[in-house]
């Protein structure tokens, strides 16, 4: 028997936790926001109070000077007004990312935010947790999206680097999460040379280091001479890949670290020469396996390719519905 769950309502600009008058990842300023992670389409400034993990609050502070943050450690339960208990659980997406477990009147709801199941040296792994309603993302919710093991992608990058000692490999990577993960994975795969950064990535990398993530020797492109960059990895935000900025680099080979690189034309649209399929989101198998593992009474699907995941749920006799939330973008994952 499925309970009513009238206390939790998907609205166009966020998920409303009615008794606590709180909103999860709202796209408009609200009195109290429960934020899953620091990406701009989930974490916005201007809320009265923001509940998030300490790392997410630090990230938001860097971007918006967030005031009145209420830190929630992983696993710690916070009692909100109206008798709603919230617990932040690791989501494995980026530093500080969390699923939010909501408990009210004996009913359990989990909002995953963005998540993945692959190992990531920059954040603790997703913790599967039983619940009645599982509200999942669906960014890569199509069966064509199967992210390959990261070791192969890092090997591709290092091979191209070794074959082109006079060039540099310019890796476009989302400024929060992907950039630091690529750097940490390169270190884990034996790349110990200095890695050069676009200026826009510096503060976030330092923040990761403050949270104990070792990124090895980082240098700024702006402080390097052109010839110093030959044979090295340069990391920049995706927007800078085809920007005037990249003209200062010595014969850059354009790479991009993103789950979208699985589709050739997506890579071509970005003028990418070396596509690296590295995603911080669950791929199709992770999405479907996680639903099966968590085994909720009902699955609600938020942003991404809802239709296909909804279809999978139907084919597998699982109750599901797609929510029409606005304001979430296909970020440059």
């Amino acid at each position: 028997m499925i309970a009513d769950f009238a206390w939790i309502r998907p609205e166009p600009h966020g998920i409303h936790v009615v008794p606590a008058d709180s909103w999860i990842d709202p796209s408009q300023p609200v009195e109290r926001a429960l934020v899953t992670h620091g990406h701009a389409d989930h974490a916005r400034g201007g809320h009265g109070q923001t509940v998030a993990t300490p790392a997410t609050l630090a990230i938001m502070d860097l971007r918006y000077q967030t005031k009145n943050g209420l830190p929630a450690e992983y696993g710690e339960t916070i009692r909100l007004a109206g008798g709603v208990d919230v617990t932040y659980l690791p989501a494995g997406h980026v530093l500080g990312s969390a699923q939010i477990l909501l408990e009210h009147a004996g009913e359990r709801v989990i909002v995953t935010g963005d998540y993945k199941r692959r190992a990531d040296p920059t954040c603790p792994p997703f913790l599967p947790t039983p619940c009645d309603i599982f509200i999942t993302e669906a960014t890569f919710g199509l069966p064509v999206f199967v992210h390959p093991p990261i070791a192969g992608e890092m090997a591709k990058l290092r091979t191209v680097l070794a074959e082109n000692p006079d060039a540099c490999v310019l890796v476009g990577a989302y400024a929060l999460g992907k950039a630091q993960r690529v750097i940490a994975e390169l270190r884990a795969h034996g790349h110990h040379d200095p890695i050069y950064l676009h200026g826009a990535l510096e503060k976030m990398c330092r923040l990761y280091e403050d949270f104990g993530i070792n990124l090895g020797e980082l240098r700024l492109v702006s402080e390097a001479k052109k010839d110093d960059l030959r044979g090295h990895v340069v990391v920049c935000p995706p927007g800078a890949l085809n920007d005037r900025w990249s003209r200062r680099l010595p014969d850059p080979i354009t790479a991009m670290a993103s789950g979208w690189m699985r589709v050739r034309q997506r890579a071509r649209q970005r003028n990418v020469e070396l596509p690296l399929i590295v995603s911080d989101h669950a791929d199709w198998c992770e999405l479907t396996d996680t639903i099966a593992e968590v085994n909720p009474h009902e699955t609600w699907i938020t942003h991404g390719r809802e239709e296909a995941l909804l279809r999978w749920c139907q084919l597998n006799q699982r109750r599901a519905r797609a929510l029409a939330l606005v304001g979430y973008e296909d970020e440059d994952d």
Binding site: L142, P143, V144, V146, R262, V263, R264, Q265, A308, R311
Partner: peptide, 24 residues
């Protein structure tokens, strides 16, 4: 080999029959 609805959604997203088939 693949659910027709999932095939169509995938083909529509990828924009190329051969590539979609190679992935699925």
């Amino acid at each position: 080999r693949v659910d027709p609805v999932l095939w169509n959604l995938s083909r529509d997203f990828v924009g190329d029959t051969a590539e979609t088939a190679s992935l699925l």
